[in-house]
Design a protein around this nucleic acid. Structure first.
Length: 807
RNA sequence: GCCCGGGUGGCGAAAUCGGCAGACGCAAAGGACUUAAAAUCCUUUUUCCGGCAACGGGAGUGUGGGUUCAAGUCCCACCCCGGGCACCA
């Protein structure tokens, strides 16, 4: 009879059919088991689940399945993030209604996720563009508004005149709009809504210490830099011949005696006072040219105002300049330039011939040049001779006492601007009344939903402005004619709290039931790409702290452990539709099956590393699964009647494999080595196939199937059934490894001479040092090599090696 | 410019605590089975030198130095690649 062949497609379709509509993966809040919340970052519905995504979910799903077998009550949900831009752009390109387009894609992607066999609890599916989800976004917004965490202010933004819209920083390419290459982006002051994330800047920063155990160092570092806390002082310089003061921020108040100039950002409010006529147009030009350049290197340029400022410490008069390298958005928008101790100031002052002098010299040296960090002050009046650190303290205290300065902390992070002039997003629930001003939409009127079938052209202002039924409302306070806010919220709002909604997705009274989130939170393991390290992962942390302060949740942080997996590269580039190098899940399932796709992606590289996709590699994974399938099917119920010599070897390899895989799951997630171990086990099994006893064979087949489950669940199910056991596999306990069985019988002792391997002996474990040394010295191979040499030293590492040092 | 990663065969990689470098796989070559192909199975594959061969010897983890009985692993300097931030005072 010909051997049964591995037909992945047929097996996978069969089990998919059986799992349909089942409650297999349902998580329960009232379980007596310990909870485990594992989550992959949610995808936006582009319609294609490609192998870059699959890597993400294959990791999460392996973990979810493993944890279930370990007896955890596992929550592993999936939902859809209706990301604004892609949906809108696709709608423009396809001339389709974005809702229609999105729901079509969601169905499509859901089908692909099901085909891959990911073990989600679909009863908790959440879609962030659902009006019910909008309701709670708006509810949060109103709560924040009430507590002063949301506010409206005029702010400088990137503006493309051609589009008639605000652009995010990422949408500015080489100073021009990404859609209109020839159109330089302008900086415009526009009224926008902000969330006061800076209120939590300190807490977000301090809590990083608590995240150290579970988050990648790299991500925490990026967040630390992003928050960018710096301690220093604010100091007022008096405008010469006036009682006006200009405030600067500095981290180096100890260098203030070396201040050579006071430099204002071109947007600084004092500029219009100091600059008249000609200078004004030059300042305007400076602002425009910087905006046009975008972020990056800018040649330092300055404009002298002809006015002077008085150094409050020395009484010295220093010239006031306007400099294009000074940022209005950081500190006070004005700096004191200390060329001797700051490279940027040096560059600027050299260029314009502004005189300077050093005021700090390094400890234990007479060298005074240049840019000394900390040292001892010189030429600084009463402070001369003080060490920098002490000087900073003393000088700040003096400034404070005399009322011209104070200690100050500045952050790089800014409040979160959430207004978007786009169709796709949660409408901001606010009404502008000519009489009453800004009026929040009453809670009973929520949600404010997007009108359907709005023509989206990508041109002009927010598409909502052209929809009178949406825009024209009565003021909730006075009942007079009023207009709605036409901006929508940044869609990062959606992803800031979606994982809380998973705990209680159908709640219509509140965003979620706090007792349910209290059970599941914090998320035990979150998995996603490193590209979200700052935006999404900072916003989420902020949102959690905000909700905690409102009494909605008890946890301070949303995520206990974070794992960032590497990108999948094809033909030297990240997989994306625009590059045309996408391998879709459907394509892969068609060719190899879902199990092969998972196995290969996990096997090819450790999960945190970038990985190259090659079809040839997937072929290897497929043939491995074929070997497993054939081995198991032809050996069910087979084996020698009595126990055999091979049994010991096979069991040893089996338990070494169990150990390897279990510890990979428990610590570093290097599933590539887990799968390599499985392959080694298969090699040993095939080698001894005919010599294994019936009892051991049954044991091996069972355990092999169990540990295969997290990686290749369809095949595991099929083989489980072949063995006549009750499905599903993950309802069975993970096999424990037995250290006694896993241990090698003999220790292999490497004998080295001067560190080079010259021979080896096999001894019982735990053989004492002296015996090992004696055995090594008398070894037939070693003896001749020692002839005529003097043994200087012998190093013995028990159970490992003997190193003989000779002269 | 600053801050992080990383550099190991033809390729993806392994070596978890300083203790046999290259596990496992891909690709390639040769062979078995086959009318043939696919599939499957077996053998070889870091490199150089010696040998018909089993085998023996040398070199080798980006480069140069160091610590150590012993370094892919630790320390110092440099080169290259990837990522993040980018005039943050």
């Amino acid at each position: 009879m010909p051997e049964k062949q591995y037909d992945a497609k047929q097996i996978e379709e069969k089990w998919q059919e059986r799992w349909k509509d089942s409650a297999l993966f349902r998580a329960e809040e009232n379980s007596s088991k310990p909870k485990y919340y594992v989550l992959e970052m949610l995808p936006y519905p582009s319609g294609t689940l490609h192998i870059g995504h699959i890597r993400n979910y294959a990791i999460g799903d392996a973990l979810a399945r493993y944890k279930r077998m370990r007896g955890f009550n596992v929550l592993h949900p999936m939902g859809w993030d209706a990301f604004g831009l892609p949906a809108e752009n696709a709608a423009i390109a396809n001339k389709r209604d974005p809702y229609e387009w999105t729901s079509f894609n969601i169905e499509n992607m859901k089908r692909q996720h099901r085909r891959m066999g990911f073990s989600y609890d679909w009863s908790r599916e959440v879609t962030t563009c659902d009006p019910e989800y909008y309701r709670w976004n708006q509810w949060f917004f109103l709560k924040m508004l009430e507590h002063g965490l949301a506010y409206r202010k005029k702010a400088l933004v990137n503006w493309c005149d051609e589009c008639g819209t605000v652009l995010a920083n990422e949408q500015v390419v080489d100073g021009c709009c990404w859609r209109h290459e020839g159109t330089p982006v302008e900086q415009r002051a526009i009224e926008q809504w902000f969330l006061r994330i800076t209120k939590y800047a300190d807490e977000l920063l301090n809590a990083i210490g608590e995240l150290k155990d579970g988050w990648p160092e790299r991500v925490l570092l990026m967040q630390t830099n992003w928050i960018g806390r710096s301690e220093g002082a604010e100091v007022d310089f008096q405008l010469d011949g006036s009682d006006k003061r200009i405030r600067v921020f500095t981290t180096r108040i100890d260098t203030i005696f070396g201040a050579a100039s006071l430099i204002l950002a071109p947007e600084h409010p004092m500029v219009s006072e100091l600059a008249g006529g000609d200078l004004k147009t030059q300042v305007k030009r400076m602002i425009d040219s910087r905006a046009a350049k975008g972020p990056g290197d800018v040649d330092k340029e300055g404009l002298p105002t002809g006015k002077f400022a008085v150094n409050p410490f020395s009484g010295e008069k220093i010239p006031i300049w306007i400099g294009n390298f000074v940022l209005m958005g950081y500190g006070t928008g004005a700096i004191m330039a200390v060329p001797a101790h700051d490279a940027r100031d040096y560059e600027f002052c050299e260029k314009y011939g502004i005189k300077w002098r050093p005021v700090v010299q390094p400890a234990g040296s007479d060298v005074i040049w240049p840019f000394v960090d900390d040292g001892f002050l010189r030429d600084s009046g009463e402070f001369s001779g003080l060490p920098s650190e002490e000087a900073r303290r003393v000088m700040t205290a003096k400034a404070e006492a005399e009322g011209f300065g104070k200690a100050a902390v500045t952050y790089r992070i800014k409040d979160w601007g959430i207004s978007r002039q786009r169709y796709w997003g949660t409408p901001i629930p606010v009404i502008y009344c000519p009489k009453c001003g800004i009026v929040p939409v009453p809670e009973k009127d929520l949600p404010v939903v997007l009108p359907l079938r709005v023509p989206i052209t990508g041109k002009g202002r927010s598409p909502l402005e052209n929809v009178p039924e949406f825009m024209n409302v009565k003021c909730p306070k006075c009942g007079e004619d009023a207009r709605r806010e036409s901006d929508t919220m940044d869609t990062f709002i959606d992803s800031s709290w979606y994982f809380y909604r998973y705990c209680d997705p159908h709640n219509s009274k509140a965003p979620f039931d706090s007792s349910k989130t209290a059970y599941w939170f914090p998320i035990d393991q979150y998995i996603g790409g490193v590209e979200h390290a700052i935006l999404h992962l900072i916003y989420s942390r902020f949102w959690t702290k905000m909700m905690r302060d409102f009494g909605l949740v008890k946890n301070d942080e949303p995520i206990r452990r974070l794992f960032t997996q590497g990108m999948v590269i094809k033909d030297g580039a990240k997989m994306s539709k625009s590059k045309g190098n996408v391998v879709s899940a459907d394509q892969m399932i068609e060719r190899f099956g879902a199990d092969t796709g998972r196995i290969f992606e996990l096997f090819a590289a450790p999960p945190e590393k970038e990985m190259d996709w090659t079809d040839a590699g997937a072929n290897g994974a497929y043939s491995f699964l074929g070997r497993v399938y054939r081995f198991v099917t032809r050996n069910v119920g087979q084996g020698q009647p009595e126990s055999t010599d091979a049994d010991r070897k096979v069991l040893r390899k089996l338990h070494q494999t169990l150990h390897r895989i279990t510890s990979d799951f428990e610590s570093r997630w290097h599933f590539n080595t887990s799968i390599a171990a499985l392959m080694e086990l298969m090699n040993v099994l095939i080698e001894h196939e005919k010599q294994i006893s019936r009892v051991v064979m049954a044991d091996v087949l069972e355990k092999l199937t169990l540990v295969l489950e997290p990686f290749a669940p369809y095949l595991a199910e099929e083989l489980w059934e072949e063995q006549g056991k009750a499905a599903p596999v993950f309802h069975h306990a993970w096999p424990e490894y037995d250290p006694e069985l896993a241990r090698d019988e003999e220790a292999e002792i490497v004998i080295q001479i001067n560190g080079k391997v010259r021979g080896r002996v096999y001894v019982a474990f735990g053989t004492p040092k002296e015996t090992l040394e004696k055995q090594a010295m008398s070894d037939a191979k070693i003896q001749p090599l020692l002839d005529g040499k003097q043994v200087v030293k012998v190093i013995v590492v028990p159970d490992k090696l003997v190193n003989i040092v000779v002269k």
